[in-house]
């Protein structure tokens, strides 16, 4: 995260232009359909938002360091499946099972990170293979059937998927997770020493290493973080809908990467913005929600989503060019 001059550069920054587009989009949807801003619809959006948003936070840090992770959607599916299987077979209490799921995510992230950094294979290939391994594992251990999730109330269920009402809005605790993790990620990337290292590694790895920055260790930790956040999001989702499906999260990896780059983080590393990612997450969520409301046929959703993502990327590229010239 570059420390720029406040004011003029904030207006030109990618997260700001994304924010403007988001506001325009929200306004269009709100005018097109009065239900868009209804408490029920906002509550719905806010229930889904954190699940992808939490993964996007980890992905932003990883992309800023110059790597990415295609296995997050599969981890999103596998983690809750493993937890539920352990509980259902009576092999572990819910707490122990959650811990086991967490350790599994750490292991997957560590394997990704070590292969990418120590053997030097691109993260595209490593995490694509990991996607297949992890998704395959989820399908195999469940024999392809969804599991009924833990639906008895308890501490962990409340912690991950509890809900509360504010007026006529209904919010889930996952929103707090998202807010808390977002603040933490903003702090790390913008203000902490670690964030300086993450940006430097993605911007010019050799330069960072030459200054004594432990680039490989930082990258491995970010792979682990991203994997853990994907697993956490998967468990939140499973608890919320009281079911764990082995195919949950299919395609999430691309949706999450889209959120991150739409927010203005560079796919090539070095430039990351958490605020942009939050805007990007809100944008993709409201697009998916809004186009349903304004009556776009279901099978045509992805055309719209794709076109809007493309438009955003073109806008960022043009702004970037302008900034370089100015």
């Amino acid at each position: 995260m570059p420390v720029g001059k406040r004011g003029s550069s904030l207006v030109r920054s990618p997260q700001f232009s994304s924010l403007i587009i988001l506001i325009v989009l929200l306004a269009v949807f709100a005018i097109a359909d009065a239900n868009f801003l209804s408490p029920l619809n906002i509550s719905n959006m806010m229930a889904f938002l954190p699940e992808l948003g939490i993964i996007a936070l980890g992905m932003t840090l990883l992309l800023t360091a110059g790597e990415f992770d295609l296995s997050v959607g599969a981890v999103f599916g596998l983690a809750p499946v493993v937890v539920m299987l352990l509980v259902q077979n009576g092999e572990a209490s819910i707490g122990v099972a959650l811990l086991a799921g967490l350790i599994l995510c750490v292991a997957i992230g560590a394997i990704n990170g070590v292969i990418v950094t120590k053997i030097g294979i691109s993260s595209f290939l490593v995490t694509l293979s990991m996607l297949l391994v992890v998704r395959g594992a989820a399908l195999y251990i469940t024999q392809g059937f969804p599991l009924k999730s833990w639906d008895q109330p308890g501490f962990f269920v409340t912690l991950l998927a509890g809900s509360f009402n504010i007026g006529s809005f209904r919010f889930y605790t996952s929103l707090w997770w998202f807010v808390g993790l977002s603040l933490l990620a903003i702090y790390i990337l913008r203000y902490a020493k670690l964030g300086n290292w993450i940006s430097a590694i993605g911007s010019n790895r050799n330069a960072a290493v030459a200054r004594g920055v432990p680039a490989d260790a930082v990258k491995i930790c970010l792979f682990i973080l991203t994997s853990v956040l994907a697993g956490l999001a998967g468990m939140i989702s499973a608890f919320r809908i009281s079911a764990a499906s082995p195919v949950a999260g299919t395609g999430y990896e691309l949706e999450v990467i889209a959120m991150v780059v739409v927010g203005g983080t560079a796919l090539t590393g070095g430039r990351g913005t958490i605020l942009g990612t939050i805007v990007g997450a809100l944008m993709l969520r409201s697009i998916r929600n809004g186009i349903v409301l304004i009556g776009v046929p279901g099978l045509a959703y992805n055309i719209f989503v794709g076109v809007i993502i493309l438009a955003m990327l073109i806008l960022h590229a043009l702004l970037q060019k302008n900034a370089a010239r100015g």
Binding site: N196, W197, A200, S203, N204, A208, G212, V213, A266
Partner: peptide, 16 residues
């Protein structure tokens, strides 16, 4: 090259 282009001059000077 010894610098990270996406970082400010100040951040580069003190990198590490």
């Amino acid at each position: 090259t010894s610098l990270a282009p996406d970082l400010s001059i100040a951040r580069n000077l003190f990198l590490g």
